[in-house]
Amino acid sequence: MTDPSPETLAADQLFRDQLVALIPSLRSFARGLCGWRDMADDLAQDAMMRGWAARASYTPGTNFRAWMFMILRNQFYTTIRKNKRMTSWDPEVAERVLVEAPSQQSAIHVADVAKALQKLPAEQREVLLLVGANGVSYEEASEIIGCAIGTIKSRLARGRKALAALIDGAPGDALFEEVA
């Protein structure tokens, strides 16, 4: 076997560094998708290993985040077909953090948004996580999910509406609170 070229070694090192930088986002996306901390971390690590194994098919200079998110997403859908538990809610995520605007009368618990997210169809949840939580552009989300930008926008709108309805309509959880 011949030694790899210096260019290949440099590309591998760059790939590795990009993976490291992306770990927080991969963990966050995975956690939002499956709502189960340990499984989410397994999913993120699996995606990293698959990405590393497939690095030869990545074109340097193209969107690395979109490429890795696509791998993670594909792995998620493959896994949930085999494991129904991944759609359940993880109480570990449920820190009772209150998000409020200083001048507003209503507030919302982050944990309740996380809980409501898990009740949404996966196609809406993933768009909310990508665009709403991770700050991914419509174009990038379209690349990751493999659908038209218009579809991303409509899923986002439907997802936001469904999320708001779930939070607003959830009985007995005091999801919106009056802020003194």
């Binding site: 927080p24 986002s25 963990r27 966050s28 956690r31 939002g32 995520v93 820190e95 953090v97 998000v99 409020e100 605007a101 001048s103 507003q104 209503s106 507030a107 919302i108 618990h109 982050v110 948004v113 996380a114 997210l117 909310l128 996580l129 709403g132 939580a133 991770n134 700050g135 936001r160 999320l163 708001a164 939070i167």
Partner: peptide, 17 residues
Amino acid sequence: FDPVSAALQQLHQAVAS
């Protein structure tokens, strides 16, 4: 101010940090 957007971003930040 959109509390849902803020909560989604905070969810991300909580895990990312």
